[in-house]
């Protein structure tokens, strides 16, 4: 059952990214081109729709205090905004702005076997590993 939950979650996530246009780098770039004539606000609707849906489920869970598999749910502790978060987010943003691609759309695109996406995923994994080395 656990495995099925994650498989369904992944498939629905991939379909959502595809339908919403997040897997199209040009559309992402046009959303990021705020203040220019080519600006397209479309992707704001994606986040604007995903966040409230998640929020509703989060609030229900917090009220019920139990997850569907029966464990007690504790809200994660509120952590401070630290240097790691700030530096990491800025570096991530620069990377995202360069190509218009972030991890979800890149992996959803893997089945299409487009060379730019394969290169992106390979160096993204390299980035994961470098960060892991630095932390340890």
């Amino acid at each position: 059952m656990n495995k099925l939950i994650y498989l369904i979650s992944g498939i629905v996530f991939g379909l959502g990214l595809s339908l919403s246009g997040m897997i199209d780098p040009e559309k992402v770039i046009s959303f990021l081109s705020i203040g220019t004539p080519v600006w397209n606000p479309a992707l704001a609707f994606v986040l604007g729709s995903a966040v409230p849906v998640y929020f509703i489920f989060f609030m229900i869970l917090r009220k019920k205090k139990h997850t569907l598999n029966g464990t007690v749910f504790n809200s994660p502790p509120i952590r401070k905004i630290n240097k790691r978060l700030v530096v990491g987010s800025v570096i991530f943003g620069i990377g995202w702005g360069i190509s218009g691609i972030c991890p979800g759309p890149a992996l959803t695109h893997l089945a299409f076997i487009d060379i730019p996406f394969v290169v992106f995923i390979a160096t993204m994994i390299l980035g994961f590993e470098i960060e892991k080395r630095i932390q340890t």
Partner: peptide, 16 residues
């Protein structure tokens, strides 16, 4: 694309 992936991978892990 390679540079973009590297920054995205590193930055997303560092920033959590």
């Amino acid at each position: 694309w390679g540079l973009s992936g590297l920054l995205v991978g590193f930055g997303s892990r560092l920033g959590g």
